[in-house]
């Protein structure tokens, strides 16, 4: 895709560590810490929700190998594996990717968060909201299955996923 940093990166041999048919392991030039490695699908998918599951699985498995390699070769004391999925999560490249970040004590990188105190009610409501969404999703899947798997999913026009829209605008 035009102007996509990761799609463009595919042309830059010096940044690509390895690639499979579907997935690329690369060293970006914009990083949190030196030694950071990025794993992303070759095909342009904006967010995780759009990446086919087999490709997604391969991405994380390769990220895990990269994590081990970083740990053993760069003298790091740990690694973080991070996916920023969607604008709200600070995703700044409109192409899904996994970051593997080498860590050292006192490297100055703060990847912790302040625990957010929640009331019992909030917790209860959140749990219910998630559980019923999962239930609905399961019901939808069943219904779809009964209709015959080959039929296209019913379209609801005019409703675009906000994330896709906003990411495309940036692309």
């Amino acid at each position: 895709m035009d102007n996509c940093e990761y799609c463009g990166l595919l042309q830059r041999d010096w940044q690509i560590v390895a690639s499979s048919e579907d997935v690329v392991i690369a060293v970006k030039d914009k990083v949190a810490v030196l030694g950071q490695i990025t794993i992303f699908p070759k095909e342009h998918f904006t967010i995780m929700e759009l990446v086919p599951e087999p490709v997604l699985q391969q991405c994380l498995i390769l990220a895990n190998k990269a994590s081990t390699a970083i740990f053993e070769t760069l003298g790091s004391q740990g690694t973080n594996v991070l996916i920023r999925n969607g604008l709200g999560a600070g995703q700044d490249v409109p192409h899904f990717g996994i970051e593997v970040i080498p860590r050292k004590e006192d490297d100055g990188l703060n990847l912790r968060w302040e625990p957010r105190p929640l009331s019992e009610d909030e917790i209860e409501m959140t749990q219910q909201a998630l559980l019923s969404a999962i239930f609905e999703a399961e019901k939808g899947r069943q219904a779809q299955h009964n209709q015959g798997a080959d039929k296209p999913i019913l379209q609801e026009k005019g409703r675009t996923n906000y994330l896709i829209k906003s990411l495309r605008r940036r692309a």
Binding site: M48, F71, V81, N85, G88, L130, S132
Partner: peptide, 25 residues
């Protein structure tokens, strides 16, 4: 579950995060 979150919690994104080792938090 990320899909579920975007829908049910009206999140505009999700962060997937893992820490390996104390230095990584």
């Amino acid at each position: 579950l990320s899909q579920i979150m975007l829908k049910a919690l009206r999140a505009s994104g999700t962060t997937v995060f893992a820490a390996n080792g104390g230095a990584a938090g």
